[in-house]
């Protein structure tokens, strides 16, 4: 497998804030790679460095064979970058925006039309509308079209689905899978843990550090701790009781359930349920479940 993105020991600080701490990563050619982490984890800083828009304090990075500092001019011709903030010209129409970006890259809408066709046809009926007047989902599609118009080798998408409703999110991931089939390497960030499962491989990032890199299934499979899923109508009371239970390693609400991990290596989970019953928590049910991506992320970011 060829490497498309090579990041070695990248660090970046803003005054006292260490935004990135010794980040190293490799993304393979034609991979759909997810950078998963919360607000403020350093995702956007890393994107800006990889797109040659920000200089790292330390370390090196290569994208599609080009160094982000020395070869930045070449690099920019070979990548597409869709920032988290909508950054097209609001007072140009859909068509004008697309034409503008095609022209900058010495290309035309016609030249690479096959690449954007599936996405662009959905906004084409509105091509005379100003970009600023589009709905959130349509802005996202236009931004993606503009990022693709010069047929980049690597596509950088910084939180493309933040603030977008589940229907549009679903469609968007469908589009990414299609682009991947056309040979484009995709590096995408998201704060949504459920989107992690849609990537070939993911890296967890928190407070400027990479916590783990692997396929979503391997990350879950290699998780060492057992998770007890607890259901009761008195979630809040159960949460408080287990919050001060001597054997609790962690206890978190997960929607309508609680996820409990024990501090002991082997434990009889009936003991935990009995403890709840003794504390007068009613209708307690429990079962051991396989961990979710989110369980793993929380455990890693605790340390």
């Amino acid at each position: 497998m060829q490497v498309s993105l090579q990041i070695s020991d990248i660090s970046k600080s803003f005054k006292d804030l260490k935004a990135l701490k010794h980040i190293s990563l490799e993304v393979r050619e034609n991979e759909l790679f997810g950078l998963i982490g919360p607000d403020g984890a350093g995702k956007t800083t890393l994107f800006r460095i990889l797109a040659s828009l920000l200089l790292p304090d330390e370390g090196q990075a290569n994208v599609a064979g080009f160094d982000v500092i020395k070869d930045y001019k070449q690099l920019r011709k070979n990548i597409g970058y869709m920032p988290g903030k909508f950054s097209l010209y609001q007072d140009l129409t859909v068509e004008e925006n697309l034409n503008f970006f095609a022209t900058i890259f010495n290309s035309s809408i016609e030249e690479n039309y096959d690449l954007i066709k599936d996405i662009y046809v959905q906004i084409e009926p509105f091509k005379k509308r100003k970009a600023g007047d589009l709905s959130g989902g349509m802005k996202q599609k236009l931004a993606l079209s503009c990022a693709l118009i010069h047929k980049p080798k690597v596509l950088f998408l910084d939180e493309p689905t933040t603030g977008v409703d589940p229907v549009s999110r679903n469609e968007f991931w469908g589009m990414l899978k299609k682009l991947q089939k056309k040979g484009i390497t995709i590096f995408v960030s998201t704060p949504y843990m459920d989107e992690a499962a849609l990537c070939d491989r993911i890296a967890f990032i928190n407070q400027g550090e990479i916590l783990q890199v692997d396929t979503p299934s391997a990350i879950v499979k290699n998780f060492a701790k057992q998770v007890l899923n607890i259901q009761t109508p008195s979630i809040y009371k159960a949460l408080r009781v287990l919050g001060s239970y001597q054997h609790t390693h962690s206890i978190y609400p997960f929607g309508e359930s609680l996820h409990y991990m024990d501090s002991r290596k082997d434990f009889d989970w009936n003991e935990v349920l009995n403890h709840l019953k003794n504390e007068e928590i009613k209708d307690v049910e429990g079962e051991l479940i396989s961990p979710e991506i989110e369980d793993v992320f929380m455990e890693l970011s605790r340390n």
């Binding site: 919360p38 607000d39 984890a41 843990m193 809040y236 949460l239 609400p253 970011s301």
Partner: peptide, 21 residues
Amino acid sequence: TGGVDPITRRQFWELIYEAAD
């Protein structure tokens, strides 16, 4: 709590539970 890290989000929900309680 949209976009917030999973641990912080849960701490916030504990406050919500408490207020509802």
